[in-house]
């Protein structure tokens, strides 16, 4: 079942309504289906195309541009070890080798049990905390090899399941705009006036 579920469909509709043009909701909706299925399926992309009335080719064109979208199943926990300069200077290389040994897989692959996917990553904006890694995009700082073993054990034991949701979930909460507070997102073609608070003369001068 990789079309959006009814409850996710409701969320999708709310997201779409926030944008002046539907297609802007594409990336957020790709995240939503990835949250639902763990990765992005062809059927899901067809469904998004329907929702945004664009072609599936447009959906896959956008989706495959972005690192975070996966098109076949990945581990419950995707571990990204940063390899860019600051981290490299402080042992990112070793950390990656250790990770490969600990998990018994090469970077870029997934463990037998479907628990972990290990990936080499680019700068994670935590350079002062090098070497860093992310688990499902949650940072871990100044990671030693012992820290890494501990982390893997904690993830296996479920000790972190409250803190780190399975792959696909971006935030554990969502923005919600209450209808009575929502200013609205009209298509720019339908807008001619400036906003209410801008004195007209500002423009006429």
């Amino acid at each position: 079942m990789s079309r959006l579920t009814d409850s996710n469909l409701a969320i999708a509709r709310e997201i779409i309504s926030r944008y002046p043009r539907k297609k802007s909701a594409l990336i957020p909706l790709l995240h939503l289906t990835q949250e639902q299925n763990g990765y992005v399926t062809d059927e899901a992309m067809r469904h998004l195309a329907e929702l945004l009335d664009i072609t599936p080719a447009e959906v896959i064109g956008t989706a495959t541009f972005y690192e975070m979208f996966k098109f076949e199943p990945v581990g419950t926990y995707v571990i990204n070890v940063c390899q860019t300069l600051s981290c490299a200077l402080l042992g990112a290389g070793n950390l990656m080798h250790h990770a490969e040994a600990k998990l018994g897989i090469k970077s870029g692959s997934t463990t037998e049990d479907g628990m972990f996917t290990l990936e080499a990553a680019e700068c994670q904006a935590a350079c002062t905390e090098a070497p860093t890694l992310q688990v499902n995009y949650r940072h871990r700082y100044r990671v030693t090899t012992d820290d890494f073993d501990q982390l893997v054990d904690d993830l296996r034991s479920g000790a972190l399941s409250g803190e780190i949701p399975p792959h696909g979930t971006l935030g554990r909460n969502r923005q919600h705009i209450p209808a009575d507070k929502f200013v609205g997102a009209p298509d720019p073609d339908d807008v001619t006036e400036g906003p209410a608070w801008i004195p007209v003369k500002v423009e006429s001068t």
Binding site: R18, I27, F65, Y66, F69, V183, G184, A196, W197
Partner: peptide
């Protein structure tokens, strides 16, 4: 009379 929505948008890695 000032009113504006702020929409949180998710990037996806690029």
């Amino acid at each position: 009379d000032f009113g504006v929505d702020i929409v949180l948008h998710w990037g996806a890695g690029a």
